[in-house]
Amino acid sequence: MRRTRLFVPLPLERGQELALPEGPRRHLLQVLRARPGQALVLFNGEGGEFHGELVSASKREARVRLVDFDPVDRESPLDLALAQGVARGTHMDLALQKATELGVRRILPLVCRRSVLPPHQVEKKMAHWQGVIIAACEQSGRTRLPELAPPRPLDIHAEALAGAREIQALLLHPGEQPAAALLDTLDAKRPIQLLIGPEGGFDAAERERLRAAGARALGLGPRVLRTETAALAGITLLQHRLGDLG
């Protein structure tokens, strides 16, 4: 039987008995309807995971005993970051979810001309996106959370990219040269950053700004992909060729 996995941002050690924080406790008891004796897997993002069981549960507290530690490492050897143009609602959620499941190490939200992200919503969005990432790690078996950077304007990101020559930046846009033409030139030992626009893509000025910062453009076939589909397809292609997919 598959064990329920929970991210718990606390120091953990074998033999420990602990009370779950409110978020994991509510999810475990109210959503999953777990009962004492339920087998659990806990991880704190520092690597490896702890096997244990729910020993007591009430409206105010859920206590877990950690029985064993497994130093399993399911992280991709590829240092891959997704620089994703901020998209609306579920489009952004799906991009972050699939990027996490597929093993990216960093997620860099970009505020583009076609993005909609009022300043007063940034903190709320960051908390929501972090929740999406945590849930994807719990589901996929990852033991480390990808880093989620605060959203920043594309121009500022391009300036930083121009000064980071060790990064292999790839700009995904319809109609550009086929991906196969670039994949063979990439070094799997150096960081790779995949740049994907929001709904409607990067506009012409943004594409030129990113090219000037050193990004190389590539396409994924003759069809126009939604932003979340482009993220999924691009990451899968890179992980298959240079990472640990297949």
Results as ranks from 00 to 15, higher is better:
1 M>Q: 13
1 M>T: 14
2 R>I: 02
4 T>F: 09
6 L>E: 01
8 V>Q: 00
8 V>D: 04
12 L>E: 10
15 G>L: 06
16 Q>G: 02
16 Q>T: 01
18 L>I: 03
18 L>K: 01
18 L>E: 00
28 L>S: 00
29 L>T: 01
30 Q>G: 01
31 V>T: 09
31 V>W: 05
33 R>S: 05
34 A>C: 10
37 G>R: 13
37 G>V: 10
37 G>P: 13
38 Q>R: 15
41 V>Y: 08
43 F>A: 07
43 F>N: 08
45 G>S: 11
46 E>I: 00
48 G>E: 07
51 H>D: 07
56 S>I: 05
56 S>G: 05
58 S>N: 11
59 K>R: 15
62 A>G: 06
64 V>F: 02
64 V>E: 04
66 L>F: 06
68 D>K: 14
68 D>G: 09
72 V>M: 00
74 R>G: 00
75 E>W: 02
76 S>W: 03
77 P>W: 02
78 L>E: 00
79 D>T: 06
80 L>A: 08
80 L>H: 08
80 L>P: 02
81 A>T: 14
82 L>K: 05
83 A>P: 02
84 Q>S: 00
85 G>D: 12
85 G>T: 07
90 T>K: 15
90 T>C: 06
91 H>L: 09
91 H>E: 10
92 M>V: 07
94 L>R: 08
97 Q>R: 14
99 A>R: 08
99 A>D: 13
106 R>Y: 05
110 L>V: 10
110 L>W: 07
110 L>K: 11
111 V>P: 01
113 R>M: 06
119 P>M: 13
119 P>Q: 14
120 H>R: 15
123 E>C: 05
126 M>P: 05
128 H>W: 13
133 I>S: 04
140 S>C: 13
141 G>D: 09
144 R>E: 02
147 E>C: 01
148 L>A: 12
149 A>F: 13
151 P>F: 06
152 R>G: 02
153 P>Q: 10
158 A>H: 08
158 A>W: 04
163 G>E: 13
171 L>F: 07
171 L>W: 01
173 H>F: 03
173 H>T: 11
175 G>Y: 13
180 A>R: 15
183 L>S: 06
189 K>E: 14
191 P>H: 06
194 L>S: 04
199 E>T: 11
201 G>T: 05
202 F>P: 04
204 A>Y: 13
204 A>H: 12
205 A>H: 15
208 E>P: 04
210 L>P: 03
215 A>F: 01
216 R>M: 08
216 R>W: 09
216 R>H: 13
217 A>V: 02
219 G>F: 12
219 G>R: 08
221 G>T: 10
221 G>C: 11
222 P>R: 13
224 V>T: 15
224 V>Q: 11
226 R>V: 10
231 A>V: 11
235 I>K: 01
237 L>E: 11
237 L>G: 07
238 L>D: 11
241 R>T: 15
243 G>L: 06
